[in-house]
């Protein structure tokens, strides 16, 4: 048996747990996932991260990204990806993560001394 209450000026309505309740208006937007947006500025360039937005699904995220990040021909292609799907290196492990390349100076061309008069090198 449902409880009954006067709700929102619509008269007495049942309120038991079996009665479906409409989602609260202001909470719908909160559930939209966060998308990170990447734009290719022109042909020949990489996609570059430009910012983020919330959208209910992938397709609407692309449309919203078009409106938000390319109002002045800033791009020829857009990627969106759910922020939750990105795996990133952690700033806490910065040293162990990037240190291995720090002491390998021989990987750079300037490590090698070549006489000035050797052409095209």
């Amino acid at each position: 048996m449902s409880d009954v209450t006067a709700e929102g000026g619509h008269g007495a309505v049942p309120t038991g747990p079996e009665i479906p309740v409409e989602p609260k208006a202001s909470t719908a937007r909160r559930d939209w996932p966060l998308y990170e947006v990447f734009v290719r500025g022109k042909r020949g360039l990489n996609h570059v991260h430009v910012g983020s937005l919330h959208a209910p699904d992938d397709e609407m995220a692309v449309h919203a990204a078009r409106d938000l990040y390319t109002r002045r021909n800033e791009g020829v292609s857009i990627w969106v990806v759910r922020a939750a799907d990105i795996t990133a290196s952690s700033p806490d492990e910065k040293d162990p993560m990037f240190a291995p390349s720090g002491d390998k100076v021989y990987r750079h061309p300037t490590f090698y001394e070549i006489p000035d008069d050797v052409p095209h090198m």
């Binding site: 989602p23 208006a25 202001s26 719908a28 937007r29 559930d31 939209w32 209910p56 699904d57 397709e59 609407m60």
Partner: peptide, 20 residues
């Protein structure tokens, strides 16, 4: 704008739910 247009975000959420 937040309250009166809430139905737009609700509709978009419902649409996304159906298509997923």
């Amino acid at each position: 704008a937040r309250d009166d247009n809430a139905w737009v975000t609700e509709a978009a959420t419902a649409y996304a739910g159906k298509h997923s």
